[in-house]
Simulated assay, not measured.
Amino acid sequence: MVSKLEKISSPTFVVLKKAVEANIHHFKQKAQFNNLTLRPHFKTHQNNTIAKQFYDLGIRNIAVSNIAMAEEFSHFQWDNISLAFPFNIREIDKLNKISENTQITILVESIETLDFLNQNLINTIGVYIKIDAGYNRTGISYKNTAMVQQLINKIEESDKLILKGLLSHFGNTYSAKSKEEVISIYSISISLIEQLRQGLDQAYNNIPISVGDTPSVSIVDDFGNVDELRPGNFVYYDWMQYKIGSCELNQIAAVMICPIVAKHNDRLQIIIHGGAVHFSKEGYSENNEIRYGQAVNMDNDLSLSLIADTFIKSISQEHGIVQCTEDSFGKFEIGDLMVFIPIHSCLTANLMKLDIEFV
Rank of each mutant, 00 (worst) to 15 (best):
residue 160 K to N: 10
residue 186 Y to W: 12
residue 168 S to V: 10
residue 179 K to Q: 15
residue 159 D to N: 15
residue 163 L to H: 09
residue 152 I to T: 12
residue 159 D to G: 13
residue 149 Q to S: 10
residue 174 Y to T: 06
residue 168 S to Q: 03
residue 177 K to C: 02
residue 158 S to W: 12
residue 152 I to W: 11
residue 189 S to R: 01
residue 149 Q to E: 12
residue 183 I to T: 14
residue 167 L to V: 12
residue 148 V to R: 04
residue 163 L to N: 13
residue 192 L to N: 14
residue 180 E to Y: 11
residue 184 S to E: 15
residue 172 N to D: 10
residue 175 S to G: 10
residue 162 I to F: 04
residue 185 I to F: 15
residue 183 I to F: 03
residue 158 S to K: 06
residue 155 I to E: 03
residue 151 L to K: 09
residue 181 E to G: 04
residue 181 E to Y: 01
residue 175 S to D: 13
residue 185 I to C: 06
residue 187 S to A: 13
residue 160 K to Y: 12
residue 183 I to N: 02
residue 187 S to D: 13
residue 159 D to Y: 07
residue 185 I to M: 06
residue 154 K to Q: 14
residue 156 E to W: 02
residue 153 N to A: 15
residue 158 S to M: 08
residue 192 L to M: 06
residue 148 V to E: 10
residue 149 Q to K: 07
residue 170 F to R: 04
residue 162 I to D: 05
residue 155 I to F: 05
residue 154 K to S: 00
residue 157 E to T: 01
residue 190 I to Q: 12
residue 152 I to L: 11
residue 147 M to S: 01
residue 170 F to Q: 07
residue 155 I to T: 07
residue 162 I to C: 06
residue 192 L to D: 09
residue 192 L to G: 02
residue 156 E to N: 11
residue 171 G to T: 05
residue 159 D to A: 07
residue 171 G to Q: 05
residue 166 L to A: 13
residue 184 S to A: 13
residue 189 S to L: 02
residue 150 Q to P: 01
residue 175 S to R: 11
residue 168 S to L: 11
residue 153 N to Y: 14
residue 187 S to G: 03
residue 153 N to Q: 15
residue 183 I to M: 09
residue 156 E to V: 12
residue 148 V to S: 10
residue 181 E to T: 00
residue 148 V to Y: 09
residue 165 G to T: 09
residue 171 G to C: 08
residue 164 K to D: 02
residue 184 S to L: 14
residue 177 K to F: 02
residue 182 V to S: 11
residue 154 K to C: 00
residue 177 K to W: 02
residue 160 K to G: 09
residue 163 L to C: 14
residue 158 S to V: 08
residue 148 V to P: 10
residue 174 Y to I: 13
residue 152 I to E: 08
residue 166 L to D: 11
residue 171 G to E: 14
residue 151 L to C: 01
residue 162 I to H: 05
residue 154 K to D: 00
residue 155 I to S: 10
residue 156 E to F: 03
residue 184 S to D: 12
residue 150 Q to T: 13
residue 150 Q to C: 03
residue 182 V to C: 05
residue 147 M to F: 00
residue 159 D to R: 08
residue 158 S to Q: 08
residue 166 L to T: 09
residue 149 Q to P: 01
residue 172 N to I: 07
residue 191 S to R: 15
residue 167 L to H: 12
residue 149 Q to D: 04
residue 185 I to V: 14
residue 182 V to Y: 07
residue 167 L to G: 07
residue 162 I to L: 12
residue 154 K to L: 06
residue 149 Q to T: 08
residue 177 K to H: 09
